[in-house]
Design a protein around this nucleic acid. Structure first.
Lengths: 253, 253
DNA sequence: GCCAGTCGACTGGTCAGACCAGGTGAATTC
DNA sequence: GAATTCACCTGGTCTGACCAGTCGACTGGC
């Protein structure tokens, strides 16, 4: 009796650089090499692992492209351990959209899902500090003039970030941020050409106040619905026409 | 008047391997190098880019670790272009959980969000082929004995994959798969030690039938709720006790 | 004594050349 | 015609070298 119908699995050769990268990654993920600590110099690693320098360097490149370490030429302390960051996540999402595997419509719909759920959970699990952070960002947005669109958009991002973190799920928050970034990267130029920035900003502030109100009073479903509707209102006209149907399926009650 | 308060931004030197990697990545993402096509040999790239071989190799390592290409020693055709894959996504998610940035509870809750939304959208947008695929996988699961847990779990994954693809949002499907894989990677050993595999499998099939039924008849909210409840039922006892509160906030109506 | 400049010993980034094991396909042999 | 051999090319690895940049200790002048 075998729980699998394959007795032997095909085994692919493991490259030397891969084993080096795995060992170092294991040390980082296990917390043995905390963020801020330093790796030994490359020429040190060469003797420790018993491999050539190119092998060590390829391993370090892999770790660096995963955002786990950062190296700077001339640094006598060696490469710096960065720990796990969400940059890799947003990078992967960005690739998916740039390669047309995922369209802008799908990206926006995905953001609707994440933000709506963030709102719902935030309404149930928020703390007083969370509410204060959200209020702060709204105040900051309200204080900005129509020419400061970039700063406005950053405050907007921080507001949504605060909501996502209030949800208590850091994974949700990280993904929401990555998707937000990906959407902004795609759509930034289109939104900049919009006609009446002032009206758009006023409406946006209005919406954020409504969300905060729903979150504060614990109306989970209302907060959830508000998030969906707002994204639909902002982006429905910017996505591909055939993607509108997708978005409509998401907002329809 | 500047929309940014910084006139000059700090500029970090761009490494040679980075520019090489960017050029190749650009070609892949733009569709210029479709999946299945081949990159020139390394020694070719050396002359084309005018850099050393180690530089080319480090660039290829970065692309390979991002899942964009795959190289095999001795292949006279050169590295193979794989296109964008979700492997990178699930790898990043796995790192987040392994490094305790995200707990298992958060991972499961995130999966609840994605699957519930997949169910909801699938109920609204499914096609006849989608329904057939789901039915197929349920039949396959029902035909398996209690000893074939691994095959059962794979069919289960394919069922959820079919639902996610029926949602019409490929990004949602990719992320759902990545999260599913990450959950399985963490929890596989715990679930294998569960007492009555047969009862567990029967209950699982029952649940999948209920989801399919709701999707087929277009009951979006019911399908959504079923997804949440099922995940709660399966995993609530396996996550950290303090994470139960998170999950309860997700299922509570 | 203190500060500024110099210098040397590192660092990572890059290159060139070499060797190896493995795969391919054409030439060779039966 | 089929099986075998073999030259050639692939990616993987190692070595040794050089460069530019960084840092710290040393040394000069004030």
């Amino acid at each position: 009796m075998t729980s699998d119908d394959v007795l032997f699995r095909p085994v692919q050769p493991v490259r030397a650089y891969q084993r080096v990268a795995e060992q170092i990654e294991e040390r980082i993920l296990s917390g043995d090499l905390p963020p801020g600590s330093r790796l030994p110099a490359e020429r040190d690693l060469v003797t420790r692992f018993g491999v050539g320098r190119s092998t060590v360097r390829e391993a370090l490149r892999v770790l660096q492209s995963a955002g786990l370490i950062r190296s700077r030429p001339g640094d006598p302390l060696g490469a710096e351990v960065l720990g796990v960051s969400p940059d890799n996540l947003s990078q992967a999402l960005g690739r998916l959209t740039r390669s047309r595997v995922a369209s802008l419509g799908e990206l926006v719909q995905f953001r609707m899902v994440l933000e709506a759920e963030s709102n719902r959970l935030a309404a149930r699990l928020h703390t007083a500090e969370d509410l204060a952070r959200m209020q702060d960002e709204i105040d900051r947005m309200a204080a900005l003039g129509p020419a400061e669109l970039h700063a406005f958009s950053e405050a907007d991002a921080r507001f949504h970030q605060a909501v996502a973190e209030a949800s208590g799920n850091s994974l949700l928050a990280l993904c929401a941020r990555a998707v937000h970034e990906a959407v902004v990267a795609v759509i930034e130029k289109r939104i900049a050409g919009a006609a009446d920035a002032a009206a758009w900003m006023a409406r946006s502030i209005e919406h954020h106040r409504a969300v905060l109100c729903a979150v504060r009073s614990g109306e989970a479903e209302a907060a959830c619905r508000l998030g969906r509707e707002a994204l639909f209102a902002y982006y429905a006209d910017l996505v591909e026409p055939e993607a509108r149907r997708l978005l409509e399926a998401s907002v329809e009650p």
